[in-house]
Computed example of a mutant assay.
Amino acid sequence: MSVMSLRLPDELAATLTLLAKATGRSKSFLAVDALREYLAREAWQIEEIQKALQEADAGDFASAEDVAAVTDKWLNHAG
């Protein structure tokens, strides 16, 4: 396992300390958990953007009729 040192703003460090005490978890556990979730979300977003760019480069766009159908559906069911 790697060790990493980082500087935290005082407010963030205080919040982390309070949360660690409240949950009975270590600050390290909470920081790793938060970082794991953040990295997974960012990786997913980058992957989806790359897929969309590939589709756009291939000319795979919705037709005007497709867009109109979805717009009509939402306008008629918006309530």
Rank of each mutant, 00 (worst) to 15 (best):
S2E: 01
I49E: 13
M4K: 06
A40G: 03
L12P: 05
Q50C: 06
A20L: 08
Q45I: 05
T71W: 06
L35G: 04
F29E: 14
V70E: 10
L19I: 04
A52S: 02
A58N: 03
A31M: 14
V3Y: 09
D10H: 01
A40V: 11
D57K: 12
L35V: 09
R41I: 03
A13S: 15
S5Y: 04
V32F: 07
L53C: 03
T15G: 07
L35P: 01
E65Q: 08
K73D: 09
A64M: 04
A22M: 01
A64Q: 06
E11H: 09
D66L: 05
D57M: 04
R25N: 13
F61M: 01
A14T: 12
K73T: 10
E37D: 14
D72Y: 10
A14V: 04
E42K: 13
L75C: 10
A68K: 08
L16E: 02
L39F: 05
Q54P: 01
V3N: 11
L16M: 12
D57F: 14
T15A: 15
E11F: 01
I46P: 03
M1G: 10
D60V: 08
L18E: 14
K21G: 07
V3T: 02
G24I: 01
N76Y: 10
A52P: 00
A69P: 07
A64I: 02
A62V: 09
S5I: 05
S63H: 06
D66W: 03
V32Y: 04
G79L: 02
S26V: 01
A69R: 11
I46R: 15
A56E: 00
L12A: 13
L35D: 00
G59W: 08
K27C: 04
A64Y: 03
F61I: 02
F29I: 08
Y38G: 00
A20I: 07
A20E: 01
A68D: 07
N76P: 02
G24A: 04
K27F: 06
G24K: 06
E42F: 11
G24E: 00
L53K: 07
L12C: 04
V70W: 00
M1T: 08
D57S: 06
D66M: 13
G79Q: 02
L12D: 13
A62C: 07
V32L: 15
A22L: 05
F61Q: 00
K27E: 06
I49Y: 07
